[in-house]
């Protein structure tokens, strides 16, 4: 099984340690991981802003980079969702179809493809899971509160096996944090308010560390936490699953 590691642009530049944790974790699980150089971005920021056409170049590069691999795995639900959902703007060649089909968000890859949940991690903190919308409602990483389906959560399956962790439950289980890509700047007031409200929910429920499978949401929350000096940290789920404390 050849796995291509997809490190989204903002993780590459701003959160290399998330990329490192992802890679180390996959290697720990015995996966043959390759990191194609020359990656840029999946084009999501452009598409969500209404400039899908201008993203074609980025999408094309993505396909070129990853068409060789059996699986494409990345630590960001929204990017994977964009590939699956919005690469319909490209001509649907075999390569494009395969890339769309074989792209996986890290947690769903581990649980559904590798079939593992206990990764031997330990992390003795009170953790709140932020279920990012594109992962939850787009990739269906879990059941969502609006739908009357049976309950499941891919991330929780993994987190539950982490030694010492205490998973805190939230008052609003899966409300959006207000990041939304360029929404965070073009609708600044609402974006900030939504983020503050999400953070408050975690604080009210005794959370010490907010985690999630999408670091863009966490970046937004982190920006607010740091500005307001709140007693919370954010960590990508790969970092928790890769830690032995």
């Amino acid at each position: 099984m050849k796995v291509g590691l997809f490190i989204p642009c903002y993780i590459n530049q701003l959160y290399p340690k998330v990329g490192i944790a992802t890679l180390e974790l996959l290697e720990k699980l015995g996966v043959e991981v390759y990191y194609p150089t020359g990656q840029t971005c999946c084009g999501q920021p452009l598409g969500n802003s209404g400039y899908e056409e201008d993203a074609k170049g980025a999408c094309q590069i993505f396909v070129e980079n990853f068409k060789e691999y059996d699986y494409i795995v990345g630590p960001s639900g929204s990017c994977i969702h964009h590939i699956k959902e919005h690469f319909d703007i490209l001509e649907q060649t075999e390569a494009v179809k395969n890339v769309r089909k074989n792209s996986y968000e890290l947690c769903e890859f581990i649980v559904n493809i590798l079939g593992k949940t206990n990764l031997g991690a330990s992390f003795p903190y009170k953790v709140g899971l932020h279920k990012s919308c594109h992962g939850l409602r787009g990739l269906k990483l879990g059941s969502c509160s609006e739908r009357m389906d049976d309950y499941y959560s891919t991330e929780e399956e993994l987190l539950k096996e982490v030694k010492g962790i205490e998973l805190m439950s939230l008052t609003r289980k899966d409300e959006c944090c207000g990041f939304g890509g360029t929404f965070s700047v073009f609708e600044e007031a609402i974006s900030v308010k939504m983020g503050k409200d999400r953070i408050q929910d975690h604080l009210d429920n005794g959370v010490e560390v907010i985690t999630g499978a999408d670091h863009s949401c966490l970046m937004h929350l982190d920006g607010l936490i740091n500005r307001n000096n709140q007693p919370l940290r954010v960590m990508h789920i790969a970092e928790i699953l890769n830690s032995c404390i």
């Binding site: 971005c41 920021p45 452009l46 400039y51 201008d54 993203a55 170049g57 094309q60 590069i61 360029t182």
Partner: peptide, 11 residues
């Protein structure tokens, strides 16, 4: 956004 698109198309 136009420039972003251009840049992202050029590794």
């Amino acid at each position: 956004l136009k420039i972003t698109g251009m840049v992202l198309g050029r590794p």
